[in-house]
Amino acid sequence: MNDHDGPLDLPASMADIFLALVAVVILMLLSLLPALQKPGGLATQRPSALSWNEIVIDGEKPAVYVAVGAGIEVADTETRIGLDDVLQNQALLDGLRTAAQERSILLVVQPDGQESAFLFASLMGTLSAAEFYQLRVDSGCIYVLDPKRADLCRSSAGAEVR
């Protein structure tokens, strides 16, 4: 009888099986890698982004502003105010003053828009009686570095209203 043919050889054969399973899993992950790198590669369809025109507060459509990392965007138009100009932009202040008299104001805060939201809140403070609502998009997507994937993540993310 050989020294390696007994019950003592069981751990060695289990180690071989374990290494074979690990190799199979690694090969499966490598075969999925191209699909994971392509934006939307595993998604069957891209979820539709939240339309700001569909939001209703107290029975009316609010004036929607979006705080992003680069500044403030006015949702109804293509207007973008840079981060450095938020506090000094007279057109933004006039638009806010007019909107505050006519309807509610909603600030949608994207995960990278914290600084813009802070500046917007300061600007709203100059309008003494104006109140505004905030909708904070889930920051669980902030880890996504690829802009296309980040948009996909944000469009399907939940939101918290404050």
Rank of each mutant, 00 (worst) to 15 (best):
29 L>G: 04
12 A>P: 00
108 V>T: 10
81 I>A: 03
73 E>Q: 14
70 A>S: 14
8 L>Y: 10
30 L>S: 08
85 D>E: 15
13 S>A: 07
107 L>D: 08
58 D>Q: 10
53 N>Q: 11
151 D>K: 06
84 D>T: 09
85 D>M: 14
62 P>F: 12
41 G>W: 02
56 V>W: 03
154 R>D: 06
127 L>D: 02
28 M>S: 03
127 L>V: 11
77 T>L: 04
161 V>M: 13
68 V>N: 07
4 H>W: 10
30 L>V: 12
64 V>G: 04
160 E>M: 14
114 Q>A: 15
134 Q>C: 04
39 P>V: 02
119 L>F: 12
136 R>A: 13
108 V>M: 14
24 V>I: 14
17 I>C: 02
149 R>A: 11
95 G>R: 02
125 G>A: 09
148 K>M: 07
128 S>C: 03
11 P>Q: 13
55 I>K: 07
82 G>H: 08
96 L>R: 09
113 G>E: 05
98 T>L: 13
73 E>R: 15
42 L>C: 08
57 I>E: 01
76 D>T: 08
144 V>Y: 00
110 Q>I: 00
102 E>V: 02
150 A>C: 06
31 S>V: 11
142 I>H: 02
118 F>N: 07
62 P>K: 12
63 A>L: 08
36 L>P: 00
45 Q>D: 00
99 A>T: 04
96 L>P: 07
2 N>H: 07
27 L>G: 05
